[in-house]
Design a protein around this nucleic acid. Structure first.
Lengths: 321, 321
DNA sequence: ACTAAATGTGTAATCGGTTACAGAATGAGG
DNA sequence: CCTCATTCTGTAACCGATTACACATTTAGT
């Protein structure tokens, strides 16, 4: 690797002048500037960020903490983060923390050892105080004074319930996502508030996990532990799918006998038969905006809002009447 | 942050002694060792990796280059990588390169600026010569002399065709994945070799893209441009899904009238109705083994095989007779 | 033409580690 | 008891950048 020293030598100036030229800081004469630029070009020089980082005690790296990258919601979010980061010269460090405090702590340490300049977290955020650097929560807006970008899940729940009402659902089952999942409660309360306003009869069915292998059992349980229903507001698309499967298995038609609405809008939701009507979460946007907010924080640009809520969107397909 | 200097002061020794103690290098007296260990403990010291990295010209960071993290195959792979890395004290830097040479070049530069110690790539790998560090290709085994971990797609294709034969398929359509996709050709040739051996009649249907939005159109096209068939070997689960949808739409029954086998085994494949029989790729394993190989390369451990092929597996569900 | 301000440049300190080297202390062997 | 190898420890150089500071040169103002 070419160092600044070699550039200085080649250009016939001191390293200080090279550094000043490259960073547009301090005064640099016309002649020197030209000589340096030429040297940089012919030598193909680019600065070692590690050395820079050592002195500046910061870097162009940001950490991204996720509960589980294999959960289909997060890859899109990660893509949004990576896109913004890349466009602005930052590198993304991926951390899978699985809501495990120990792993999160490991990363807190990692990050400080590497002079990471900021952290984006879609994980618990309990450790947020520990970070000495700018910190933005993704889809986990807590009451505390954190910066955050999240989906407006209350609205999402309302949208889902409204869609069911518009589709003339009469007896509806609302699946309540596991309590520990971000936004699950907001979704539920949004849906219930609309149903209550309309005076519609409904049952709440509790699910205890997001694990895919449990989805099928849960769907069976749903049918067995509830009174007859004609509409289901699922806690997410995976559950919606499982419920659809069980519905068809039991010989009911979708949407004629039972209609179903999901939440997330995953890749496969549109490819199902029938196509799953669902609430689309702006996952990519959450990531992208989150990265933007973080970088603004790092670079001390002004920030419009400390807590941003992005709007989910109803995706009309064929699982509603 | 506590520095080594403060530890040295507190312990009443020199920084050299502290460093030697921490790295178990050179001679350290019993007394000193104890004093240092105590100082480290009470001060809560841990070394700054940036400083270490500057001198050592390497780091505990590895780069992971993916064509598209939002493609459902890669998150699992990424998880495998992250798991192994984390367990061995490495950080993973995520790069989404989208088969775009310019982006890949950007990352090559990024990586060298940060003294990255190794690179895992599921992207084209055309730039692999450019890396000055250990390099392992994931699922893109080229002819060249690279280290690589890949799925045995030839075998995967054979498995799929055999399953169709066992299920008494008579007229089969084989979808040929887009040529630029890793392994697509192997899959095809594996499937065809088995079909040929059995003397079964088949048609090959070319698909030109992996884009999800095109999957539905492609499925329609499949039905319209081929002679009657009773079995489909899809190029992946997304296509399999689209074909299932179109099949049902057209009033055929699965698997009675038309049977379908996919490739990948995605989250949703088991939740479909009917459950999609498919070839499971060991995505997590590819990532995990790849990371292991890379770390072995970095730490100059011995490596058993330069090119590893992992076996795919048939997942029997309900879309075959 | 003379002084003060503005501009240009190099030397050296600094960031926080690792390690070569030299010198001191200890132990072993004769 | 002396010598030499072994063990221990500290000083200082180094990694590759940034920047404070001092000094030199140019420019501007009167």
């Amino acid at each position: 690797m070419v160092t600044i020293k070699e550039v200085a030598e080649y250009a016939g100036v001191s390293v200080a002048t090279v550094s000043r030229t490259l960073n547009n800081s301090g005064y640099v004469g016309k002649q020197s500037r030209i000589k340096v630029e030429e040297a940089v070009k012919t030598l193909g020089y680019y600065p070692n960020e590690i050395a820079r980082s050592l002195y500046q005690k910061t870097s162009k790296m940001i950490g991204l903490l996720l509960p589980d990258i294999s959960n289909p919601y997060f890859p899109l979010l990660a893509k949004g983060v990576e896109d913004y980061a890349q466009r602005n010269g930052y590198m993304v460090i991926l951390g899978n923390v699985e809501d495990d405090e120990e792993k999160e702590e490991m990363y807190v340490k990692f990050f400080s050892q590497y002079n990471i300049s900021g952290v984006l977290s879609a994980a618990s955020g309990k450790k947020s105080q520990t970070y000495q650097v700018p910190f933005v929560l993704l889809d986990r807006a807590l009451e505390e004074e954190n910066y955050s970008i999240a989906t407006d899940d209350q609205l999402g729940g309302e949208l889902a319930a409204k869609a069911i009402i518009d589709a003339k659902g009469k007896q509806v089952v609302v699946m309540a996502g596991p309590g520990n999942v971000a936004g699950a409660n907001d979704r539920l309360s949004g849906a219930l508030s609309v149903l209550n306003d309309e005076g519609l009869s409904y049952q709440v069915f509790e699910t205890h996990t997001y694990q895919v292998d449990k989805a099928e059992e849960t769907a069976v349980e749903l049918f067995e532990s509830t009174r007859p229903f004609d509409s289901v507001i699922a806690s997410n698309d995976v559950y919606a799918l499982a419920v659809m499967k069980e519905t068809i298995k039991r010989g009911h038609r979708i949407p004629e006998d039972i209609q179903i609405i999901g939440y997330d809008d995953m890749l496969f939701s549109r490819l199902m038969y029938p196509g799953l009507t669902t609430i689309a979460q702006p996952a990519y946007e959450v990531g992208y905006q989150g990265a933007k907010m973080l970088v603004d924080l790092i670079e001390k640009n002004s920030i419009e809002q400390k807590k941003v809520k992005l709007k989910p969107k109803l995706m009309m397909r064929d699982s509603l009447r």
